[in-house]
Design a protein around this nucleic acid. Structure first.
Lengths: 294, 294
DNA sequence: ATGAAAGCGCTAACAG
DNA sequence: CTGTTAGCGCTTTCAT
């Protein structure tokens, strides 16, 4: 059993990649991680896992640590909107693939869901079911994911010709707590929305708590669609209509993109892959009377 | 930024540990992984993650790979009942901690839940609610986890003085598919049990599909308790009574145990830590008429 | 105190 | 084609 360390020192190749993820206990990310691992193991590549705990500072530290460990490449799911630290990695020439985020001024390979279309379809579905007042619980502000989903929300309004009430856009994080708080706010409005679009699985968990607390039922009293399909989505008190993302594929593709970079088949323009989403219809959206429509 | 590789080669210390897990996308394991990572990052230790995909052969390969990478220690959640490969690691002197499994003839530090007590309490609760025919869907046979949970199931029967019907013990894996199949079998019995004890979160997911397919309701037609509490457990169609395990603590403790071994504070008898479980009462257990009792 | 040198285990280059 | 050697970047030892 040869010493991979000594070999790596000599060959300048560790057969190791770094994976930086905001929260490995979130099934969205752990599914990505799993599929990266499955690909990596096939070619004897090891993965150093780093959990940035949703903090940019820890993400930066992770990246430094991984570089000092001489990984052959990096796959990162960035926490925030900053990308200076990623830019410097790109400049250093270290292969890099980003998942779940797009930075316009960073030339880097990435894999993302079609967040705009996913949100557009979800909100359009609400409109088709004659909802006219739809709350949006957003995630981390200024992230590409959030921006695209909000744009989908806006474009759906435009498509159906309904004026957008800015006060219906609430929240500031993809976590459960934010889902709870934002829902509380939405439900307490004088003009309570008839539907809520939760932009993450964790947000919808928090939303359900708030809805329950207010003694409301889904979908009789309030309709709900959530981003991220989950194994349990169909078993919920009200089976939930969701926007499904191809997380397994995202992981696999990210690994492949990274491999081409590592092998030096580095085309001039880094690839950006956009994965389709799918609206999974279940029972959390009520069909309103058409009279509610304009 | 010093080259950790060269340093490691020289000092014989990589500040890296290996983590081998059967399925990182299972929240039970990803929560463990996360808490190991959080501890590790505090002291600049990196984690190489390996997903054994529930296969002993891949687990063995992972272990070999990690050894050749000269990790300082290993935390593994073993897949099966074999432990020869783990024994040889222990003999080699490499620090090792096992999570979620106990091997009687392997002297090695470990962290497990009190599976016996967890199962005993769950099944006792069924009895207290006047159930007398309780199906058990077991996981992987011959694993310590499974053995202990079955023992809890048996002991509960003894405690309440009800004869045990061996045909009520079905299944052979901790996965969802097994949950589905085993439930189908239980529900098709001439003498259908009034309650089912699912020994994992995935099993209960499969069980719910089968119960739904049979047109049955929880708990009116069939009661259910599942091992593993989950963030979504309370939001299910019927909020589920579960046996909660301290997964976060398990990860943290495992890392600490490993650290003491790495630092050479290696006491003669390796520590075995047993973590308590907690029965979380929700609505998936129906109180039967006492007339059903003996 | 500060600096030079040896060597960790491997591979790649080179010589025989 | 096979065997020897230099050196990857660091730490540790030893000499100054």
């Amino acid at each position: 059993m040869p010493d991979q360390l000594a070999r790596a020192l000599r060959t300048k190749r560790t057969n190791t990649i770094g994976l930086v993820i905001p929260d490995i206990s979130n099934p969205f990310f752990s599914t990505i991680a799993r599929n990266i691992e499955i690909q990596a193991r096939k070619i004897g590549t090891a993965i150093i896992l780093s959990d940035s705990q949703e903090e940019t500072q820890l993400e930066i530290e992770s990246l430094r640590l991984l570089q000092s460990r001489k990984v052959d490449g990096l796959i990162v799911c960035p926490v925030g909107e900053e990308c200076e630290h990623l830019k410097s990695i790109k400049i250093s020439g270290l292969p890099l693939v980003i998942i779940d985020r797009v930075f316009p001024d960073l030339e880097c390979a990435y894999v993302v869901s079609d967040n705009h279309k996913g949100a557009l379809e979800a909100v359009s579905h609400f409109f088709e079911m004659n909802h006219r007042s739809i709350g949006l619980i957003q995630g981390k502000v200024n992230t590409s994911v959030n921006i695209d989903r909000i744009k989908g929300y806006r474009d759906a309004h435009q498509k159906f010709g309904v004026a957008l009430d800015e006060s219906l856009i609430v929240g500031d994080s993809f976590g459960k707590r934010n889902g709870y708080i934002a829902t509380k706010i939405l439900l307490s409005k004088a003009q309570r929305p008839t539907a809520i679009f939760a932009t993450s699985n964790l947000i919808s968990l928090g939303a359900m708590t708030a809805i329950q607390e207010e003694g409301l039922r889904i979908p009789e009293d309030i309709s709900l669609i959530s981003f991220d399909d989950q194994p349990y989505s169909e078993y919920l008190a009200t089976p939930m209509t969701t926007v499904s993302q191809q997380t397994a594929e995202a992981g696999e593709i990210a690994f492949r993109l990274l491999q081409t970079q590592i092998k030096g088949e580095n085309q001039l323009s880094p690839e950006g892959i956009v994965l389709p989403t799918e609206l999974v219809f279940r029972n959390s959206v009520k069909k309103m009377d058409a009279v509610n429509a304009i």
